[in-house]
Amino acid sequence: MAEENVDVLVENIVTPENLVYRKPTTLLDVDMHYCPGCGHSTVHKIFMEVVEEMGIQNDIIGVAPVGCAVFAYNYMDVDMQQAAHGRACAVATGIKRMLPDKYVFTYQGDGDLAAIGGNETLHAANRGENFLVIFINNAVYGMTSGQMAPTTLEGMVTTTSPYGRDPKVMGYPLKFGELIAPLPGVAYVTRQAVNNVQNVRRTKKALQRALEYQKMGLGFCLVEIVSNCPSNWKMTPLESNKYVQEVLIPYYPLGDIKVPEVKK
């Protein structure tokens, strides 16, 4: 087919009445650095959809972590600060305490949130800081190329547990959501996934609920998302989603861990 014909064809197809899907306007139209099939990009997209649908693009401030999502601010078209490794919850505390009427969120990996930042996360939760923590649990250090994370499963092979994680030497996989859920300052803890369409929809709903709770001033909300790292797991995207379903989710079961009682 001649090139002109293709252009005409595309023009005829890309019309408002044919629109079935578009990127949210809150997501910048640039190439992402995430590996093909990585859950980070899915979560970015659905979270920005939520921000768009709630109409809060001008009223939200985000905190990017150190980890593969360090560049979240290159994609999310909202005001953002980039925190030192693990310090996102402390940075978010500073922001939210200064701007209590704005929405504030952090976006953190398992290493960032549960290892180096465990203390900051725990105490922000215990103070009942009124912001949302989006927690991407891919059971590995993605950015630094696949070392063991606090969430790495027993027996799971990583570059620093090359014979599989041995809990006697390396400790046990940490369920951070369950750890903080009993704290009175914590309003909402849920664990979701983005490995299939149904789970993506549920995750999106959870993110929206968390922002609504924040609006009500209910306190600390943690949305954990069991995700993948095809590159460091050395799997295809499809295989990695299957691994999420068959290996990770049985240890990190999906669903709400704590839900606030909302007075109607």
């Binding site: 401030i61 925190a83 310090r87």
Partner: peptide
């Protein structure tokens, strides 16, 4: 460690 990062957040506002 937390205090100085809270300052980062607040100063950034």
């Amino acid at each position: 460690v937390a205090a100085i990062n809270m300052i980062y957040g607040a100063a950034g506002c």
